[in-house]
């Protein structure tokens, strides 16, 4: 097993342990477990960062996302980045409980996915292409955060409406905070996805001489952007209640997943992850 594969496995192990500790902390009321789980998550993020640094050195590229293993690992990395760095002010048990299994599943999938035995250096990616991919990954990571917050919002709202003071009531942040966590990443994600689409057009024109307008993935991404854009604009004019925004965020993320998975079967010319 190569050193980078070892680091990847180690990262997956850290995320699995973090999830396990989050579970114990959530249902067993252990503050120390929660702290330990958060530390493990941070360590996992650092390990994943180190993995990409090593891959960049091995593949002699600035942007070491060359296959499906890298893509899964990078999506996990960007999700952890948004949570740990951009949203560092939130550290509730519940958020970790929702995110760590996602991180663990992505990393374990990356570990279990077979790649070609020998990967030499990859050609240096076009800067537009790199930016396009980066924006897209961070956009989807932001939508995932918004989705997690929406789920938690609906649970907390249900607890408060039902007048129950159970574990979720205690551990989940306030409705107001969750509302912010639905809206804020949704705005970031939409802005990033729009940027990704625009840069993608420029890149496809530069690389292939055409604007890939009819590509199935382009259409699906445009549809996702439109959905999120509509939710945001309705929120801005106060026509959409927080509860409905949460439900729509969940639906929109389901569409993201469907479009992501669907594109594995309908490749078109846009077969980066296929």
């Amino acid at each position: 097993m190569s050193e980078s594969a070892l680091i990847l496995n180690f990262t997956a192990l850290l995320y699995c342990l973090a999830f396990f500790l989050h579970l114990i902390s959530f249902f067993g009321n252990h503050e120390t477990m929660h702290r330990a789980a958060f530390r493990l998550m941070q360590m996992g993020f650092v390990a994943a960062t180190f993995y990409f640094v090593m891959e960049a050195a091995t593949l002699a590229t600035f942007f070491p996302v060359a296959d499906i293993v890298h893509a899964l690992a990078f999506f996990s990395w960007s999700l952890a980045f948004v949570y740990l760095v951009l949203l560092s002010q939130i550290r509730s048990d519940s958020f970790g409980l929702v995110l760590t299994p996602v991180l663990a599943v992505l990393m374990v999938s990356a570990c279990l996915t077979e790649t070609l035995p020998s990967r030499g250096t990859v050609p240096q990616a076009n800067p537009f292409f790199m930016l396009h991919i980066l924006c897209a990954f961070f956009a989807y990571a932001s939508f995932a955060i918004s989705f997690a917050a929406a789920l938690l919002y609906l649970i907390q709202r249900h607890e408060l409406k039902a007048r129950r003071a159970g574990a979720f009531y205690r551990k989940l942040p306030s409705l107001e905070e969750l509302e912010r966590l639905i809206d804020q990443p949704m705005v970031w994600g939409t802005a990033l996805l729009v940027t990704a689409i625009l840069i993608g057009f420029v890149w496809s024109k530069t690389a292939f001489g055409i604007y890939a307008l009819t590509d199935p993935k382009t259409i699906a991404t445009a549809l996702v952007t439109l959905i999120y854009g509509t939710i945001i604009s309705m929120r801005l004019v106060s026509r959409l209640r927080p509860k409905h925004a949460a439900v729509l965020s969940v639906i929109a993320f389901a569409i993201v997943i469907i479009s992501f998975v669907g594109m594995r079967f309908i490749h078109g010319s846009h077969d980066f992850l296929a």
Partner: peptide, 22 residues
């Protein structure tokens, strides 16, 4: 967590308000 969670009626009201409004 022995001090956590409000137990008097007025403090429960505050706790709930904070769960709704932050």
């Amino acid at each position: 967590k022995i001090t956590q969670g409000a137990v008097s009626i007025p403090s429960v009201a505050v706790e709930l308000a904070e769960k709704i409004f932050g």
